[in-house]
Amino acid sequence: MSDDDLLGGLVDVLAASRPEVRSHAPRLARGTFNDVVVLPGEWVARFPRTATVLREAPRRTAALRRVSGLDLPFAVPEVVEERLDLPLGEAHVVVSYVPGDPGPTTLAEGAAVGLVHDLLDPLAAVRPDPDLLAVLDEPLGFAGGSDAVAVITDTVFPVLSADERAQAAEVLARFEALEPVPPRFVHGDLAPVNLRWTGTTVTGLLDWDFAHVGDPALDAAALASFGWSALRRAVSAEVYERAKVHAALFPLEGATGTLLQGAPPDRYLAWFRRRCAVREHPPGA
């Protein structure tokens, strides 16, 4: 199905309760887990792409309701409408539009250090109550959860070369060797695409589907996209070393998540293969 046809069908579904969608200029974003209709400045509608994602959607929606009620210093999408009673392809959740610009993908080192603190410190201060704990995801839930190492091995290794499998096995061994740490509230996907900026400040944080209680070094690892040297300055030596292990796993867990959803893992495999070519997991750390 073309993007135009898909968008037209989703607009038809939304128009039943949100007729304004026909008089504006909605745009479509296709993700691994959801197809998304964006009405800029108004709202965002997320349509689960698979039955598995739809089964998880009520819990994730409940989690977002509670996360949006936390006293965080940046905007979080709020649930506006929940229509998960509809069949797959029509079921959706509408959330508020978080204003702001996509922002930079690179920062000067000093600014990157500040960004790490601006995001990680408020998350570390959250103490989830039992109601929030009950609806949060589990670490790596999209890639097998507590069985992630086995699921990654079974799912991704068959499409790797012998040398790539050997390097992947080393990455997984490092991950399995991590010692447990006191769990903290973790966003789970602090990629630049999920940040919204006003000027030089992050004022919005999107996509809380993978929020969980776990190792805060995971969020630190995501922010290493702004520079490992900045991350080294911003966090403790222990968090930095753990972040390298989590970052090494990113392409493999991403490929696993996409394959489990029946989506092509090409961009994640290309990411992993670039690392294999230089035999650094992750490069630059």
Rank of each mutant, 00 (worst) to 15 (best):
P128W: 10
P128Y: 07
D129P: 11
D131N: 00
D131V: 00
L132Q: 05
L132R: 08
L132A: 08
V135P: 01
V135H: 05
L136N: 11
L136M: 13
L136K: 10
L136D: 11
D137E: 15
E138N: 03
E138L: 12
E138I: 04
P139M: 03
P139Q: 11
P139A: 07
L140R: 14
F142C: 03
F142L: 04
F142N: 04
A143C: 06
A143D: 04
A143K: 11
G145Q: 07
G145E: 06
S146A: 15
S146R: 15
D147L: 00
D147Y: 03
D147T: 07
A148G: 04
A148E: 02
V149D: 06
A150D: 15
A150V: 02
V151A: 07
V151E: 10
I152Y: 02
I152M: 07
I152H: 01
T155F: 00
T155I: 07
T155R: 09
V156W: 11
F157Y: 06
P158Y: 10
P158T: 04
V159L: 11
S161W: 03
S161V: 12
S161I: 12
A162P: 00
A162W: 00
A162Y: 00
D163S: 11
D163E: 13
D163C: 01
E164D: 14
E164R: 04
R165F: 10
A166E: 15
A166R: 13
A168M: 06
A168P: 06
E170H: 09
E170C: 01
E170L: 02
V171M: 06
L172Q: 10
A173Y: 08
A173C: 03
A173M: 04
R174H: 13
F175T: 05
F175H: 14
F175C: 02
E176F: 01
A177R: 11
P180D: 05
P180E: 02
V181L: 10
P182A: 01
F185L: 10
F185N: 08
F185P: 00
V186K: 05
V186H: 09
V186L: 00
H187Q: 15
G188E: 06
G188R: 06
L190H: 12
L190R: 14
L190W: 14
A191S: 15
V193N: 01
V193F: 03
V193S: 05
N194R: 05
W197N: 04
W197S: 05
W197L: 01
G199Q: 09
T200V: 14
T200G: 08
T201V: 14
T201E: 12
T201D: 11
V202M: 03
G204C: 06
L205G: 01
L206F: 08
L206D: 00
D207M: 00
D207S: 03
D207L: 01
W208A: 01
W208M: 01
D209G: 01
D209I: 04
D209R: 08
F210S: 13
F210N: 11
F210L: 15
A211C: 13
H212K: 04
V213F: 00
G214E: 04
G214C: 09
G214D: 11
D215G: 02
A217N: 07
L218F: 14
L218A: 13
D219P: 03
A220I: 03
A220L: 02
A221L: 08
A221W: 10
A222I: 07
L223V: 11
L223Y: 13
L223Q: 08
S225D: 13
F226V: 03
W228A: 15
S229A: 05
S229E: 12
S229R: 14
A230G: 12
A230F: 01
A230H: 04
A230N: 10
